[in-house]
Design a protein around this nucleic acid. Structure first.
Length: 578
RNA sequence: GCGCCCGUAGCUCAACGGAUAGAGCAGCGGACUUCUAAUCCGCAGGUUGCAGGUUCGAGUCCUGCCGGGCGUGCCA
């Protein structure tokens, strides 16, 4: 059940008699900002009054008279200039919760209008080790995939890795001049990473090396046998390296079609662009000039080489032909907004105007000096080191907490390590997911690895506490769910929790609408918060009556399942004990 | 120069044109003989960068200014 959708439907019927499309007005039905105004509110009386020249309060009164809400709401109240405040009936809430108890989807319906999405995210340069800057795209993109899929959309995730650019020129150059053969043999990934860093550092000191590195890249692109052979040898190692990180982050892709996959399509594409007069020559380069934009998108350099815009255009064509998507999302940091503007404009010129092309942008990660975080700067925080640090911190807290349990520790060292891995990685992911800002943020261990307050840990803890009640009380949850036991919402804490549980569907819709996982983190935080209050105030196992005990157990069960599902959709897992 | 993004509590951030701008962290004060205190309850903290404008209503939209970030024809 999506309460908001149901309320909108009721208002739609009430508005049916008035002329015009009520869609905009229905957007003014929303959750109450403050609980003292009720559960939901409708704010359309003011614009309607304006439109018709009548006092908004009169409009509101008439609206209420036309509304048919008796089954779900108490008598609506009109307040202020014409706000219509709605308070849901406890019996109706309880009935909806009972329905959710027996629904594997927890009351969330699949969309009536499924779409096909291609989602482009993560996309690291595989020739160099992943660093902290890669987290955001990977984690946000993965969460968007999971949410859209759960809502019933078709999702194709595609990791457009950088496997064909200058970075390979750098390791080719490094391999030819500075290879430690023994190290390469025993751990190729590490040795390639070392070579990358070494060449990177040397280029900073001696710019004249740029030409030599570019020459290696050019030879690769031109089909030089040795460079091609080496590239084919390096690539699997590079992919192993990123795959290890993805496994640890629990991130999977349907496809990994990197730049090199499109290499042999570029010449034909560019030729077609030229034939269709979409691209024209300027200063020796082949350019697409876009209306209203000063700088063109260059698709072929004056030396004949193609650029990443060319590859992206070829990639877009391939995706359109292969998957016929309704939307392609690019989860990439905001610094590339001009590039995407150009790419999307060029796609339109090629006739792709039936597809939603979205740059789902986010701010860059800055170093401690406030400068953009770059691999080349000496103090790079490698992604794996960051994961290790998160897990290390989590282990300290897990151990301290377990040691402090009233009946003594209940976790063995192996369990503690597993929980620390779950909690630590979750903290890291959550730091990115909880943020809406497109502005940059300064890298900070403390911020990324925080485990108190609005963090994944808080929700995982709420989950573990809810689950432990069933273990402690020896309650078998399946029969309880099937028992048809009633849910009671007599106390404020129970009612607040129950209402929040029924908002899951709304939160997912909000998340999908603007591709913003922070809508889901906010919801889960609020839910865990309501549960924590409930947990303090309402004793479950020692409830006054058996009926109340069963009702509260069902609330615990629903809370646990909703938190687990919500976190799962963010790519975060839970632990049964913490 | 031009373009895009951002200025909200000490810090990090929420807020779909709607009511008295909300959280977390940090600070202060309470709550573990009671289902896990990674928690809960309370207090304090704001001229939403500045100045105009549009609107019944502006943190949100428009204009100008100040401050910051990013991008800007042959890197990705």
């Amino acid at each position: 059940m999506n309460i908001l959708a149901e309320l909108k439907e009721r208002f739609r019927r009430a508005l049916a008699e008035s002329a015009g499309d009520p869609t905009d007005l229905l957007e003014l039905v929303r959750r109450a900002q403050d609980a003292k105004f009720g559960d939901y509110q409708a704010n359309m009386a003011m614009p309607l009054g304006k439109r018709s020249g009548r006092p908004p309060r009169n409009v509101a009164v008439e609206m209420v008279r036309r509304l048919d809400l008796d089954d779900l709401c108490r008598e609506p109240e009109i307040a202020g200039p014409g706000f219509i405040n709605l308070r849901l009936k406890d019996e109706w809430l309880a009935g909806q919760l009972s329905a959710a108890v027996n629904d594997p989807r927890l009351g969330v319906a699949e969309t009536a209008a499924p779409r096909t999405f291609v989602i482009d995210y993560s996309a690291p340069n595989v020739a160099k080790p992943m660093h902290v800057g890669h987290i955001r795209s990977t984690v946000i993109g993965d969460a968007i995939c999971r949410v859209l899929r759960f809502l019933g959309h078709r999702v194709v995730s595609d990791n457009h890795i950088g496997d064909w650019g200058t970075q390979f020129g750098m390791i080719l150059f490094g391999y030819k001049h500075f290879l430690d053969a023994a190290a390469y043999k025993s751990n190729p990934v590490e040795e390639l990473a070392r070579l990358y860093r070494k060449v990177r550092a040397m280029m900073d000191e001696r710019p004249e090396l740029n030409d030599a590195v570019l020459a290696e890249t050019a030879k690769l692109h031109a089909g030089d046998a040795e460079n091609r052979r080496l590239w084919e040898e390096f690539l699997p190692h590079c992919e192993d390296e990123i795959e290890r990180v993805y496994r640890r982050l629990d991130v999977k892709f349907d496809h990994t079609l990197g730049e090199s996959f499109y290499e042999d399509r570029l010449a034909a594409l560019v030729e077609r662009l030229r034939r269709q007069d979409i691209a024209t020559e300027s200063d020796g380069a082949l350019c697409i000039f876009i209306e209203g934009q000063k700088t063109p998108m260059i698709v072929r350099k004056s030396d004949g080489a193609f650029l990443y815009g060319t590859t992206d255009l070829a990639t877009l064509e391939y995706r359109m032909a292969q998957w016929r998507p309704d939307a392609i999302l690019y989860v990439v940091d905001h610094r590339q907004s001009l590039h995407f503007k150009q790419l999307f404009a060029a796609a339109k010129m090629l006739g792709y105007d039936d597809v939603e092309l979205q740059h789902v942008s986010f701010g860059a990660v800055l170093g401690g000096d406030g400068r953009p975080f770059k691999t080349r700067s000496g103090d790079t925080v490698g992604l794996e080191g960051l994961l290790d640090e998160a897990v290390r911190r989590a282990l300290e807290i897990v151990s301290a907490n377990d040691d402090a349990k009233p009946d003594g520790p209940e976790l063995d060292p192996q369990q503690r390590r597993q929980i620390a891995e779950t909690v630590g990685i979750a903290a890291l992911k959550y730091a990115d997911l909880a943020q809406n800002r497109t502005s940059d943020y300064v890298f900070s261990y403390d911020k990324m690895l925080a485990m108190t307050g609005n963090t994944a840990t808080y929700m995982q803890y709420a989950y573990a506490r809810a689950r432990s009640i069933f273990a402690r009380g020896n309650v078998d949850v399946e029969p309880l769910r099937n028992s048809g036991a009633a849910i009671r919402l007599d106390s404020p804490a129970e009612r607040a929790l129950g209402l929040e549980l029924l908002r899951f569907s709304e939160a997912l819709d909000l998340t999908a609408a603007d591709y913003r996982p922070n809508q889901l983190t906010s919801y889960l935080f609020e839910l865990a918060n309501r549960y924590s209050t409930f947990f303090e105030q309402c004793h479950v196992l020692r409830a006054e009556t058996d009926e109340l005990r069963r009702s509260r157990l069902l609330l615990c069960d629903l809370t646990a399942r909703t938190i687990r599902k919500g976190l799962e959709l963010l790519g975060i897992s839970v632990a049964e004990k913490m």
